[in-house]
Design a protein around this nucleic acid. Structure first.
Lengths: 199, 199
DNA sequence: GTTCTACTTGTACTATCGTTCAAACTCCTG
DNA sequence: CAGGAGTTTGAACGATAGTACAAGTAGAAC
């Protein structure tokens, strides 16, 4: 985690890492297509175009594979939200756009994340990973207000909006989501996007 | 649906209905214990103390069984919320108590509902059932405000709070949930529980 | 009592699952 | 080149899944 890679010159390990990523990608594709219940070593291997044993070589058990897949999705979302937090701009609108994505191009990923998050209620190993999304949103909210209730409301509303978009398959409109988020956090329209000139 | 039962005198059919309810109950118990993925005709039958074939006799396919189980849970929640809507009292606090229940005695049911709701994203037959909860909350919210954004925010926040309680396993405090709901809907503390004397 | 319907059981078939394992292949090391 | 570490394959084992089906039981209709 600290440094990128220690042996980037070893072609064997490089290939291994690439394979690992491919298998995770295939796993997400399977979750998207057939749901988390459809994830088996065989389906994942077929999706990745490899043999079943190779899947078990990299992920000894199915649990290992699911944890890795959820971690991958969660990391991607974390990066997106951190970008919103660090960069200047309307954070609330950025969050709204991120949520709306769950109904469009990012629907597969979001659906996969929801499936895997639900598993988290049952597998302690997944819980910390599943919690990341809410913690990140809370951090973003903390830059907009100091009111704990408002932060909690925004986090809950963000989660609920994602659910509604995914399950109900409702039309995802950025303006609408933005308004609902504003409503949840209170009166952030003044404080949310102050046209600061930066330091 | 219009009248209760047409042949309540037939002891055979009565036993059949009882068995059906028992199997649904066993299914929910299995979902609670092992997750939706753990639902098989065999596990359900064992949980119910019957034979496998009897489970398939009442629910020809596993899908039938899952749809019936989700419908059962959704109906129970619908009844609870309708009670809140129809009866006088602080509706928002009642909703908060209902949500908090998801972390306590009603955790099993709530978890089962979430698992089955997630399935709804994939099985169109489950979608209308899974939508009920949100529609009911929206109806409750409509009695508190006319602002569509506020209604949407309350619905989303309710859903998100349930998720947080279930997945993160956070301490569920009625006061806290109530405050967050109030924050989401705006300033309902005055309008939410007006001590009206009736019509 | 006879007949019919609804309920219940035991058993079996086929398919797929997770997982293991030894052998073959690829690439780095010396 | 030889040797070893990492990668990939094919086949197989035991367990469990959905489902089907014929036989048997309990209660209703006549």
């Amino acid at each position: 985690m600290s440094d990128s890679e220690e042996h980037p010159v070893d072609g064997r390990r490089a290939r291994g890492n690439k394979r690992r990523a491919e298998i995770i990608e295939a796993t997400l594709a399977v979750v998207t297509r057939d749901g988390a219940a459809g994830v088996t070593h065989r389906t994942v291997a077929q999706q990745a175009g490899i043999t079943t044993s190779l899947s078990t070589y990299y992920f000894r058990t199915l649990d290992d594979l699911l944890v890795a897949a959820l971690s991958s999705v969660a990391d991607a979302y974390t990066a997106r939200i951190r970008q919103l937090i660090d960069r200047p701009g309307d954070k609330l609108r950025g969050l709204a756009e991120l949520i709306v994505e769950s109904g469009g191009p990012g629907r597969e990923r979001a659906l996969a994340e929801r499936e895997l998050s639900t598993l988290a209620a049952r597998r302690p190993a997944l819980a910390p990973v599943a919690r990341q999304w809410r913690e990140n949103v809370a951090e973003l909210a903390a830059t907009l207000t100091d009111d704990p209730q408002a932060i909690a409301a925004l986090v809950a509303a963000s989660d609920g909006l994602c659910t509604a978009i995914l399950i109900d398959n409702i039309a995802a409109d950025t303006d609408h989501v933005h308004k609902v988020l504003s409503q949840a956090i209170g009166t952030p329209l003044d404080a949310a996007a102050p046209p600061r000139r930066g330091p």
